[in-house]
Nucleic acid binder design. Structure first.
Length: 468
RNA sequence: GUCCCCUUCGUCUAGUGGCCUAGGACGCCGGCCUCUCACGCCGGAAACAGGGGUUCGACUCCCCUAGGGGACGCCA
């Protein structure tokens, strides 16, 4: 039987990092077994579901390059089918009408809590005659779940998990307004969609037991479950808005590459020996549930950055240039010149940057000449009297040069400092400040070369006090 | 409160009874390289939560304790 996995987010918010990893694992599992990866939007909570959230989730998945098979399913469109399943259970005597009011239920929970019992519905309408039904109360439909014995989930990540049936109450299938609950919808949809493997956060572990009961009541075979541990914030606490529970678009804005984020997320909770850099092809080849860890992990931006830098170095130049251009916000006028400079300078720039934003800042001088006074205090200090004097003389020495290759430029600089008996740094640092506006940059001869003779000499003469 | 799950360096993890004087990666510290910043290279500090068993031998198996997480909705 072909493997079918699914990612089933509820569109009540953006796609966060935990959801992204769940989607990734489902995607990888399907790819590994040459199966299908489906997407189902669980929008049955009309009050909280928004079209914006649906778009954010879809965009997030697309950005991460996690493509889904078939068309996306929308749970809200299948409510009739869900209700039908509940009614058939009712006819078979496997479900019943319950007339308890929300108030009574709340009272029940209070009492249970007081007496130290587990807080669950006591099943008082389970065998009660419908003729006793109170007037004017719309009943809910509950599953007539087994009273004793146990439900066992052979979880592919957590191992066998046994839950006493006495711990599970008769779950509501249909609300008093006739709409299906999450439990019912999930089970019916997973069955109808042919889902064979349910991979999701372990906050659903106890749901798996209830859902198994439902599958069995419907005479369906439950899917294989794999409950992956949750991701926590850097402080070990549950993910919240303050740390890490950001939308996937935030990671995009922070300058991470999709391939890098996938690699990082993959290693959170999953491993393959000592492998760290795992491109998607290898991930597909290696991924399986047995290598997923059981304990929750924390998000670590340092590591993410490091992985990102790796992918930055390997990224296609053209792609990177476009990504940078949009971040530099430069006009179109000089676009071709800037593109060429960026393409030439990218190689050594990616050795220095950990994300696209840093990269853009480091590359900025290829698009714009420094403006005075220099913002960078250390750089400004390099342009003191001595520094400017050296620059002026060196510019004069450069003027008659025919070639502008790195080697020639370096030779000229070495001859220059040797003649004056000064260290190379005495010349290189002021040069750097004048050319890039900064005290840190790629090798100065590379910068000189990429900028070109005309632009370089223009920048040198633009230094305040130069040429006297 | 009840039930379920988890626990190896700061973080992500390798480890499936002897290969472990516990390995790797990120981060951190030191050094080398050097026109700056990086990269790279070399070296370093850093962990089996605690206590009982089982065993010739436990990071690995069992029990207890502690800590962490999750679930207990007519939310998903």
């Amino acid at each position: 039987m072909a493997v079918v996995t699914r990612f089933a987010p509820s569109p009540t918010g953006f796609l966060h990092i935990g959801g992204a990893r769940t989607a990734l694992f489902n995607w990888l599992y399907a790819k590994h077994f040459d199966g299908e990866f489906l997407l189902r939007i669980e929008d049955t909570d009309r009050k909280r579901s928004t079209p914006e959230a649906i778009d954010a989730i879809l965009d997030g998945l697309r950005w991460l390059e996690l493509d889904w098979d078939r068309d996306a399913y929308f749970q809200s469109q299948r409510a009739e089918r869900h209700a039908a399943a509940a009614h058939s259970l009712l006819e078979q005597g496997r479900a019943y009408r319950c007339y308890c009011t929300p108030e009574e239920l709340a009272e029940m929970r209070e009492a249970a809590k007081r007496e130290g019992r587990s807080m669950r519905y006591d099943g008082c309408w389970r065998d009660r005659d419908p003729s006793e039904a109170p007037e004017g109360v719309d009943p809910v439909i509950r599953l007539k779940a087994p009273l004793d014995g146990e439900t066992v989930i052979d979880d592919q990540v957590q191992g066998p998990v046994r839950v006493e049936n006495s711990q599970l109450d008769d779950m509501i299938l249909l609300r008093s307004d006739g709409t299906p609950t999450y439990m019912l919808s999930v089970v019916v949809d997973d069955h109808d969609m042919g889902v064979t493997h349910v991979i999701r956060g372990d906050d659903h572990l106890t749901n798996a037991a209830r859902q198994t009961q439902l599958f069995l009541a419907l005479d369906w075979t439950p899917p294989v479950f794999g409950h992956i541990p949750l991701i926590h914030g850097a402080d070990g606490q549950k993910l919240s808005k303050r740390h890490g529970a950001l939308g996937i678009d935030a990671y995009q804005e922070m300058g991470y590459l999709p391939a890098a984020l996938r690699n990082y997320l993959l290693r959170l909770g999953w491993s393959h020996g000592d492998e760290e850099i795992i491109p998607t092809e290898k991930a597909v080849a290696w991924f399986d549930l047995d290598a997923v860890g059981k304990s929750p992990s924390r998000i670590d931006f340092d590591k993410l950055e490091s992985v990102n830098q790796h992918y930055l170095r390997e990224a296609d130049t053209e792609t990177l240039v476009e990504l940078l251009l949009s971040r530099l916000g430069t006009g179109d006028d000089a676009a071709d010149t800037v593109r060429a400079r960026l393409a030439a300078g990218l190689g050594s720039l990616t050795e220095r940057a950990k994300n696209l934003n840093e990269l853009a800042e480091m590359a900025r001088f290829y698009a714009q000449a420094p403006s005075y006074p220099l913002e960078n205090a250390k750089a400004a200090k390099l342009l003191n009297d001595d520094g400017v004097a050296h620059l002026t003389d060196f510019a004069a020495a450069l003027q008659p040069l025919d070639g502008w290759g790195e080697a020639e430029l370096e030779q000229a600089a070495r001859d220059f400092v040797a003649a004056r008996d000064i260290g190379l740094g005495k010349l290189a640092q002021p040069l750097r400040a004048a050319l890039t506006g900064s005290n840190a940059s790629p090798g100065i001869f590379e910068v000189l070369h990429i900028l070109g003779k005309e632009e370089a000499l223009t920048r040198l003469s633009a230094v305040p006090g130069a040429g006297q």
